Amino acid sequence: MQLNTIQPAAGAKHAKRRVGRGIGSGLGKTAGRGHKGQKSRAGGYHKVGFEGGQMPLQRRLPKRGFKSQTLKFNAEITLAELDALGLAEVDVLALKQAGLVRSIAKVVKVVKSGEITRAVKLNGIGATAGAKAAIEAAGGSLN
């Protein structure tokens, strides 16, 4: 390979389309814009979703629902995950370090899914009624 033989990859470079340069170019006269109308004019512009003055679809349909932005700070952990963790004392920081909850989580709750066999002490972690009963039955406690 020499410097004078280096070329760009095949198909990497292509001629720009020059419009409005006569009939022979194939894009003369209306320059690929069709005939008349707002979109054929220089500066012709309309907003996304504009339907020519008809009430746009996003305004015809009813507004519905709401997604709380505080939900991203909540996290859940199952009894099976808690059992597999294998710690005697568990707090939110331990769960974050183990990768069981996201680092952004502030409120963590244990849900009753799976079994727990070992005694676990929970600090600063909530639990559903069923999960609480299962933890206390295994000899654990909640703070």
Score class of each variant (00 low, 15 high):
Arg41Thr: 08
Gln38Glu: 02
Gly37Thr: 07
Pro62Glu: 14
Lys39Asn: 14
Lys72Glu: 14
Asn74Lys: 12
Leu71Val: 15
Lys36Leu: 13
Thr70Tyr: 13
Gln69His: 10
Arg59Ile: 08
Gly37Trp: 05
Gly49Ser: 09
Phe50Glu: 14
Leu57Asn: 01
Leu57Gln: 06
Ser68Leu: 02
His46Arg: 12
Pro56Asn: 02
Gly43Tyr: 02
Gln69Met: 14
Phe66Asp: 09
Lys47Asp: 06
Lys67Ala: 15
Val48Leu: 13
Arg59Met: 12
Tyr45Gly: 05
Leu61Val: 12
Gln58Asn: 10
Tyr45Pro: 00
Ala42Ser: 09
Pro62Arg: 12
Gln54Tyr: 08
Ala75Arg: 01
Glu51Cys: 03
Lys63Trp: 06
Arg59Ala: 09
Glu51Tyr: 00
Lys47Phe: 03
Ser68Cys: 02
Ser68Thr: 04
Lys72Gln: 13
Phe50Thr: 05
Asn74Val: 04
Arg33Asn: 11
Thr70Leu: 15
Gly53Thr: 01
Phe73Lys: 12
Gln54Val: 11
Gln69Ala: 11
Ala75Ile: 00
His46Tyr: 06
Lys47His: 08
Gly65Ala: 03
Gly43Arg: 01
Gly32Ser: 08
Ser68Pro: 02
Ala42Tyr: 04
Glu51Ser: 06
Arg60Val: 04
Arg41Lys: 10
Lys39Ser: 14
Gly49Val: 03
Leu71Arg: 15
Lys39Val: 12
Lys63Arg: 11
Gly43Trp: 00
Gln58Lys: 11
His35Gly: 12
His46Lys: 06
Gly44Ile: 02
Pro56Glu: 01
Lys36Tyr: 13
Lys72Met: 13
Gln54Asn: 11
Gly65Asp: 05
Leu61Glu: 10
Lys47Pro: 05
Ser68Ile: 00
Leu61Thr: 10
Gln38Pro: 01
Phe66Ser: 08
Arg64Thr: 13
Arg60Tyr: 07
Gln38Tyr: 00
Ser68Gly: 02
Gly65Gln: 07
